[in-house]
Amino acid sequence: MKLHRIGVAILIVILSVTLAGALAELPSVEQRTSTSQLTRRVIDGGLQDTGALNLVSAVLFDYRAFDTLGEATVIFAAVAGVVMLFYQAPLHPSSIGLSMLAKRSLDSIGPFVFLAGMYVVLYGHISPGGGFQGGVILATLTILISIVYGLETERRLLDPTFKTTLESSAALLFMVIAFGGILTGEYFLSNLSAGFPRGEAGSLLSAGSLAPLNAAIGLKVGAGLALIFYSMVKREPE
């Protein structure tokens, strides 16, 4: 056992030295941002191309939107896997929740958590944030409800079937927006060139299809992760 650990440590030291050599060969950041066509294109032409102020959202939902579609598919596969693994587990409503103090506290902060999640989703093209972060905040709210009020209450508030429907319809919404580009004679997932309104930079209704795509991803991630937590927690402890 001791020998095994020493062998692993030697292996990792060799790997780290190799990686350090590779990192030293990388061009420095100043060199890269001054010469990289891609980075200059995004920073200088991002507003012109997408109408979004948040360049990370511009990259995620316009330049690399197809990649985001693939990412949504990975999340869908993970949710499907977890739900399938726990499909036959019966609901075990063991917990009646925490004390009244915790319940009243959640009553007061819950709406604000929801508001923060929706804000982060809907303003993703203007300020830091977007569908992924906001969706996870919304999923965290359902985790809080199931801890504080018990799983039974959470199930009554948000039925698992409802969550499944929400996730699938959000994925459908994404695809409908994506095919909108093809219908107008442009490419799959085209944004401004497909006739989505540019709007005034910095206002809520701007940047064409970025805001609806953000909303679709937010609903999808939120419903999917909430479904993962619900499926994992419903099995009775052994």
């Binding site: 982060v120 944030g129 972060q133 996870v136 965290t140 985790i143 937590f229």
Partner: peptide
């Protein structure tokens, strides 16, 4: 940072 805080510390 926002994603890492919410995902890593919460979910």
């Amino acid at each position: 940072a926002m994603a890492e805080a919410v995902v890593g510390a919460g979910l």
